[in-house]
Amino acid sequence: MVEAGPSSEAAHQPVLERLRLYHELTIQTLLRTVPQKPRAKYLWDLVPSYPLRGGKGFRPGLCISTCRAFGGSTKAVLLSAVALELFHNAFLIHDDVEDGSEYRRGLPTMHSEHGVGIAVNVGDAMNVLSIRPLMENLATLGPDLTWRIFEEIEHMVRESVEGQATELGWVRDNDCDLTVADYLRMTLKKTCWYTCIHPCRIGALIATQDGNLGRFNRFGYYMGAAFQIQDDILNLVGDHKKYGKEIGGDIREGKRTVMLIHALNESTEKEKLRLSRFLATPRLQRSARDVRWVYQVMSKYDCIEFARSVARQLAGAAIFEFHKAYRTVPDSEDKRFLEQIVMYMIERDL
């Protein structure tokens, strides 16, 4: 077993402070993009709800710090960071509807509080809002760079919805014959492009105008996959107050995590049959007792430790790729932040 490093919040304080700094700056700018109309009810009044709930701000953090590490300015990259954060929050609202989640960042999800129809519409509105800051890049970055950022965003969104479709399809079709490789491909598409790879690529693009963006693909992928696996682990063993979602919610949703895939692959025929039946049961009919049983099966086969091991290997690879991707830039606080954030991704408890 690989020895874990320091996991306390204090150990990651420099990372958290920089994340907070860039996140707050992004949210302040984001809120200025929300139309202030007299008839804001049911739409524009709800748009700030998710962004104001906190969140970790990984995407703007990676985007802004990469831009700065490569010599660009916060001002030049801020509108693109705002667009990333708007897309992210739109994804979250829709994702919560699609997964039937009850809590997001410690509060009821948008659809739990306001109904599915309004929630979907608010998500749509945030997708539309994200286009505006990208258009406003035109004035400061010029047409060529603005267009290239649009291309990055188009790819990012397309990959994300494809990844989400894969995951939803697995649940709908009760696919129980998946491998870790299947999971890695799905999470590349669903999570990594938009959480890590494109934020870094866009940041570097703005700073360098014509950088070798392919260098961020592996770094962002490994980091993003480690991040997602840690997120899935926290869903099983996290502190509800810190994590902000229902603990064990992924089991109830039938979400194909590394832990569940490992359990399905390691279990006896009898256990696999019961797991398969549980996963075929409509979500609302899955009992707390059955959820506990699935958790016990995962414990029996060391599924959480297996997932942690996968996340650590990916995080190690991400740090290796970091040194390749950022080797040409001089040392700076932003560069150090980008290296340290990898460890934070797998040691965080929220």
């Binding site: 690989v2 020895e3 870790v180 491909r185 590349l188 490994y222 650590r312 190690g316 690879a317």
Partner: peptide, 21 residues
């Protein structure tokens, strides 16, 4: 210390991920 075992061997998971990417 975190990656002492990682550094000793090429990770099958990482190779798999690289191929997928």
């Amino acid at each position: 210390p975190v990656f002492k075992s990682f550094a000793d061997a090429t990770s099958q998971i990482v190779m798999q991920a690289a191929s997928i990417l």
